[in-house]
Design a protein around this nucleic acid. Structure first.
Length: 420
RNA sequence: GCGAGCGUAGCCAAGAGGCCUAAGGCGCCUGUCUGUGGCACAGGAGAUCACGGGUUCGAAUCCCGUCGCUCGCCCCA
């Protein structure tokens, strides 16, 4: 037997209501901020991601699905959402549109990872990007959108973590300061951190080991290395967020794994954490990215949010999610002769706008009623030889257990008059 | 990529070397109820016990490998 590839999953009908729910909330919210939808290809030139995400990052080093196609082009299954949007901005000359350009997307994302709860090889993201405006008010707007999305979904008790990691000039200074600081405390570092010290010093801030943690509290902070403009940006952003009454926690340990981030970075996490994969939304500013991709300097900021993780949290916090709409009628039919008329009646009900399931007439009426009950269908239309010969139909209300016999024409007229 | 746990029908699950041609529950189908659901009762279908190899007279049960899931590391949504 075949099974779905590791780290991928089928999304069965029972799961769909969560996705529709998230999509409808996200779309409504994004539209209210003036965002337009963009869909980009599932695969891109491999160079796009190497250039944007960064050569030394885990994503590029060991997680990309990259392959040569039959024509010899090196292509990569999209490992994140921002770079393709920036590519599209440049390719279509969107700098000629009124700035900033606001785009949102839903897309599958591919990373060759070891699957776990909340972590897959194919997952799906909702994301937004604002391109062409460096003002911290835009940061505040984007963060507000993310924050409100979580709340409109019914996810409460979440926390917003915020940091500023400076720009390409200030970051190396911060890293150097970190290395100096941790070198002084080398003896009390855990073995992992001793290794990280050279390779990825920012990661030491994240270490869960007790001693490293307390060291992290006093470690050099990126916000103390900001250039004056970034400093100003940082101060204003916090003011704006306060004015919007969005509670945030400054987290000096928050560093993100994609190279293109500058200045603002943020994450949203559920308060009750289940496992390590708890971030449900992450993003930040990337003012240098467009240049990296060969465009003129264009600031940008955005976030991505994982639909699988959002769904996981909706279930964990038992949010009531609306059911998918189901048909109003089941058309039961008794006897071979009723099959044709039943097929026709079901079709007419649908054209009247109500939705109908044609029951399997191979079953006894009893079985067809059971089917209606099991499917939660509120009304059954019953057609048998008697009804057909008289041009009638029995309509049974499954909720009140009452039924009436109507002329077929009257029933259809009523339907059209009051479509659900 | 590294470390750990787990894997019995669609789902939950008993079982710990022969009593397993694998219990029970949910769900599905049928009947009791000749054209009327939910409840109850009865019956039925559905499992090469994840896959492959090994040990043994004998393996769902022990060993090894593979695959998958879960947890931690790493990283991220």
């Amino acid at each position: 037997m075949f099974q779905a590839p590791r780290g991928t999953a089928d999304r069965l009908p029972a799961e769909q209501k969560y996705w529709r729910y998230i999509e409808s909330k996200a779309v409504a919210l994004a539209q209210s901020y003036g965002f337009g939808r963009i869909d980009s290809p599932v695969f891109e030139d491999a160079g796009l991601f190497v250039r944007s995400v960064g050569e030394g990052t885990d994503i590029v080093e060991k997680e990309m699905y990259t392959f040569e196609d039959r024509g010899g082009d090196l292509v990569t299954l999209r490992p994140e959402g921002t770079a393709p949007v920036c590519r599209a901005y440049l390719e279509h000359g969107m700098h000629n549109l009124p700035q900033p350009v606001r785009l949102y997307y839903f897309c599958p994302v591919f990373r060759y990872e070891r699957p776990q709860a909340g972590r897959f090889r194919q997952h799906h993201q909702f994301g937004v990007e604002v391109l062409g405006d460096a003002n911290p008010a835009v940061d505040a707007e984007v963060i507000e959108l993310a924050w409100r999305l979580m709340h409109s979904l019914g996810l409460t008790g979440i926390r917003l973590l915020l940091n500023s990691i400076g720009d390409r000039e200030s970051r190396p200074q911060h890293v150097a300061a970190l290395q100096a600081y941790y070198s002084d405390h080398y003896a009390s570092l855990c073995s992992d951190c001793r290794n990280r010290l050279e390779r990825n010093p920012l990661r030491l801030l994240d270490c869960k080991a007790e001693t490293c943690r307390s060291l992290g509290d006093a470690a050099p902070r990126s916000v103390d290395y900001l250039d004056p403009d970034s400093r100003e940006h940082w101060d204003q952003l916090r003011e704006y967020l306060a004015a919007l009454a969005i509670p945030f926690q400054v987290d000096h340990r928050l560093v993100r794994g994609l190279d293109y981030y500058s200045r603002t970075v943020f994450e949203i996490q559920p308060a009750v954490e289940g496992g390590a994969q708890s971030t449900i939304c992450g993003g930040g500013r990337y003012d240098g990215l467009m240049e990296q991709l060969g465009g003129r300097p264009t600031p940008g900021i955005g976030f991505g949010s994982g639909l699988e993780r959002l769904t996981l949290n909706l279930k964990r916090s038992e949010v009531a999610v609306p059911e998918e709409p189901s048909p109003q009628y089941l058309v039961a039919n008794v006897g071979e002769a009723a099959r044709g008329p039943a097929l026709e009646l079901a079709s007419r009900i649908r054209r009247a706008g109500a939705g109908a399931i044609l029951s399997s007439g191979a079953r006894a009426l009893r079985g067809q009623m059971r089917q209606a009950n099991a499917l939660g269908i509120p009304a059954v239309a019953i057609l048998g030889d008697d009804e057909i010969s008289r041009g009638e139909v029995v309509i049974r209300d499954m909720l009140t257990s009452t039924q009436e016999t109507l002329a077929l024409s009257d029933f259809l007229e009523k339907l059209t008059a009051s479509p659900e």
